[in-house]
Design a protein around this nucleic acid. Structure first.
Lengths: 241, 241
DNA sequence: ACGAGAAAAAGTCATTGAGACTCTAAGTAG
DNA sequence: CTACTTAGAGTCTCAATGACTTTTTCTCGT
C-alpha cells in the first residue's frame, strides 16, 4: 500500500518550547525547517509531510516531526484543518495542523543544522505559505489552553519547582505572575503534587520539587478523551474545558 | 477541474437546533440523514460529502448540508479532523467535521422526508461509522462554547426575548438557570442590546425584545478572526476565549 | 371594572476566588 | 556570624456569582 492515498493532503505541526532569553528568563521559541524545494524554496516553514495510508493523523504528525527535526513532543494536539483555496501558489493543498510542546531540555537534541533552527516566538522570520497565520492561531490556542488546563509541564521534565512552572506561564502569557498567588492556585487546584524532595545546588533556600498528578494524564487523545472525564482543572482563573 | 482531487477525504457536519420537547420547553435536536448505500446502508448518519477542488472546507460543509438537508446554518465552525484507521470498514477515510447551529424556526424548512429526520439529542438512533463519537464531541464543544461566547443566538431569529435566550441555554446545558441572574449577566456582558420594542400577544407583561450587539459579529471565520479581536465576552461564568 | 395570576425586572445578601500585598522562615555565600 | 535571597505562608480588598426576595406591569377571567 505504497501508492498515494491522500494527494494534496498534508499534516504539519507547530512546535513550542522554551529557550533561554536575553534577560535571563525563558522565552517561547519555535523550531522551523527550511524548505528545500519550490514553492518558497529556502524560506522557513513548519515541519510536516504527507499522510500515509497506514497511520492516523497524530501519528503522521509525530512521524514527520521526528523525521525533519528529530524532536519527540511531550504533548500533541490537533489544531485546525486549513483548506483555503489560495494557500499554496501551485497545488490545492489541505493541511491538517497539529501543535506540540517539547521539553526545554530536549530542545537541544534537535540538530540545529542549516535547515532546522529555533526562533523566538516574537521574532519569527518570514514564513512560507500561510504558516504565519497558522503560528498565530496556534499561539492563541496555547495561551488560552495554558490557563485552564495543565499542559504547562509539557515544557518541563519529570519534576520541577514551582518557580520553573511559573516561568513557563510567564513566558507563554508574557506577563509576570505573583509567586504567592501562583503557588496558592497551583496547590489548591491539585494539578501538582510535591515529591518531598528538594532541588539541590541553589544559592538560597532549596525549593520543593513537584511533579504533576499522574491521575490526570497528559497527552491529547483527541475527542475520545473528553467523553470519559473532562479533567477540568481550574488554573490561574476560572474553569473551562 | 472535475477530476477527483481529494479522494478519501470527506467533509461532514453536526447540526444542532431546538425542537419543542415533551414538557413544553425546548430540547436540543439534530437532523440526520439515512444512508442510501453501503457501508451502513439504511442507518442514520451525519450529512456530508466529498470536498471539491474549487471550494474551501467551510464551503464544502455548507454545500453538502444544503444539498442533503436543505438547511442553511446560522453558525458554522470547524470541529475536528477525524482520521482513525478503522473509521470506515472499507476505505480509509479522513473526515473534516464541522458543527452548525440552525434557527429553530428554520428547522421546519428541512423536508422531513423518509431520509432526513430530527432526533432529540438525548435520544439518538444508532449511527453509522464513528458518528456517535463525533456527535458526542460536538455536543461537548457546543456546551463549552455556549458558556463563554455568544453563539446562543444561532438558535434564534433576529430578535428575541431574554426568556427565549435563556431557554436556549437551559436546553443546551440541561439545567435550569435563574432568570434574574441570567438577565444581569447577559446585560452586563454587553452581548445583547434591547431594541426598545416589546413582544406582543403575551398573556402577561410583554417582555423586552433584544438583539445581539452587531459590533460583535457571529460567524466563525476560523483562525483568522482570532487574530483581529478575541471578542471575548463573559457569559454565565468566567471569561475565556 | 376589578382582582387574580404570571412573568418581567429590579434589588438584596452571602460566598467564592482572584489580585495585590506583607511577613516569616530557611537556606547559602561571604 | 551576618547579610542576602528566595521559598512559602498569611492578610486584605474587590468583583463576580448563585440563591433569593420584592416590586412592577401586563392580560385574562369573573
Amino acid at each position: 500500500m505504497s501508492e498515494v492515498v491522500f494527494p494534496n493532503l498534508a499534516v504539519s505541526t507547530v512546535i513550542f518550547t522554551l529557550r533561554p532569553g536575553e534577560d535571563g528568563t525563558s522565552e517561547l521559541a519555535l523550531p522551523l525547517v527550511r524548505r528545500i524545494r519550490a514553492p518558497y524554496e529556502g524560506q522557513w516553514a513548519l515541519p510536516g509531510g504527507p499522510l500515509n495510508a497506514n497511520e492516523d493523523l497524530a501519528q503522521a504528525a509525530s512521524r514527520t516531526l521526528l523525521a525533519t527535526t528529530s524532536l519527540q513532543p511531550r504533548y500533541l494536539e490537533q489544531l485546525y484543518a486549513f483548506g483555503q483555496l489560495d494557500r499554496s501558489p501551485d497545488d490545492r493543498v489541505v493541511s491538517i495542523v497539529y501543535w506540540a510542546l517539547v521539553a526545554s531540555d530536549e530542545a537541544d537534541r534537535a540538530l540545529n543544522n542549516e535547515n532546522v533552527q529555533w526562533f523566538l516566538a516574537d521574532d519569527l522570520p518570514e514564513l512560507a505559505f500561510d504558516h504565519a497565520l497558522i503560528v498565530d492561531y496556534a499561539l492563541s490556542r496555547l495561551r488560552t489552553k495554558l490557563e485552564y488546563s495543565q499542559i504547562a509541564h509539557g515544557f518541563l521534565g519529570e519534576t520541577f519547582t514551582l518557580a520553573q512552572l511559573r516561568e513557563v506561564y510567564e513566558a507563554v502569557l508574557q506577563k509576570p505572575l505573583d509567586p504567592g498567588n501562583f503557588r496558592r492556585t497551583m496547590e489548591s487546584s491539585g494539578a501538582v503534587v510535591a515529591t518531598g524532595e528538594r532541588l539541590s545546588g541553589t544559592p538560597h533556600r532549596p525549593p520543593q520539587l513537584y511533579k504533576y498528578d499522574t491521575s490526570t494524564d497528559l497527552r491529547d487523545r483527541g475527542p475520545l478523551s473528553r467523553l470519559v472525564a473532562p479533567a477540568t482543572i481550574s488554573v490561574l482563573s476560572g474553569e473551562k474545558i
